[in-house]
């Protein structure tokens, strides 16, 4: 098994005339915790989306756990890869499903994608909800949760399938310091044996578990630490 879980080799990505990055390369080791910073609009989110195959790279390739995820040959292969649940992705914008309760937001992927029974899924989801301090909210719909509760539930959903790679895109943006600490303390508990990529432009509150810091600027990734 290769020690690099993510290999990014000479990737380029443009939107029309706007070049986001050119010949960008980086390798991320298994269980490594990295932080990517950079100014707004520098392409941090685009890089994460390329790693998760949500954006197609123009050149180069991205290999995740030995699987060439980008550019992909067929979407069916990507679906097969996603079914393995290697990547848990927490978007900057909270994307909870408003028509499902907090519990259903966690159990639906289990039941639908993995075919796990409702009872088993409920038990697993209830455990996670307890860890995230949301056990009293399991029958609430997202619209009735506070901002912090929504954020915690959203992270819980990304972790429910126990992914090997956890991608967190500006997850503490617009949160107060207390809530930032609380969220990072939960992530710290759950990140064992996981590769974690955190993207933020806020360098005032870097979690102590970070192994490497990169700065993405003008299409290049510079190692800071």
């Amino acid at each position: 098994m290769s020690s690099d879980i993510i290999e990014i080799k000479n990737i380029s990505k443009s939107f029309g005339n706007l070049t986001v990055f050119r010949n960008l390369s980086v390798s991320i080791k298994r269980d490594e915790k990295i932080l990517i910073t950079g100014p707004n609009g520098s392409g941090k989110t685009t890089l994460l989306r390329c790693i998760a195959a949500l954006e197609r790279v123009d050149n180069g390739k991205i290999i995740v756990d030995g699987f060439k995820i980008n550019p992909y040959d067929s979407w069916n292969n990507v679906e097969k890869f996603m079914k393995k649940q290697k990547i848990g992705f927490v978007f900057q914008e909270i994307q909870l499903w408003p028509h499902f309760t907090a519990l259903e937001n966690l159990t639906k992927p289990f039941i639908v994608a993995k075919g796990i029974s409702k009872n088993t899924a409920n038990k697993m989801a209830e455990e996670i909800l307890t860890i995230f301090g949301l056990d009293g909210k399991k029958y609430q719909y997202p619209d009735f949760l506070s901002g912090g509760q929504k954020r915690r539930l959203f992270i819980a959903r990304a972790l429910i399938m126990d992914p090997e790679i956890l991608i967190l895109d500006e997850i503490t943006a617009n949160l107060d310091i207390e809530l930032k600490r609380e969220i990072f303390s939960i992530i710290r508990k759950l990140m064992k044996n996981k590769t974690v990529i955190i993207v933020t432009h806020d360098m005032s509150n870097i979690p102590e578990f970070i192994d490497k810091i990169y700065r993405l600027e003008k299409g290049r990734l510079i190692s800071l630490h």
């Binding site: 679906e79 996603m82 978007f91 994307q95 499903w97 992927p109």
Partner: peptide, 15 residues
């Protein structure tokens, strides 16, 4: 929002 659909794909659902 596109993220609603994308988050479902990332959680292992097919299209």
């Amino acid at each position: 929002p596109k993220g609603q659909y994308e988050s479902a794909l990332l959680l292992g659902m097919n299209k």
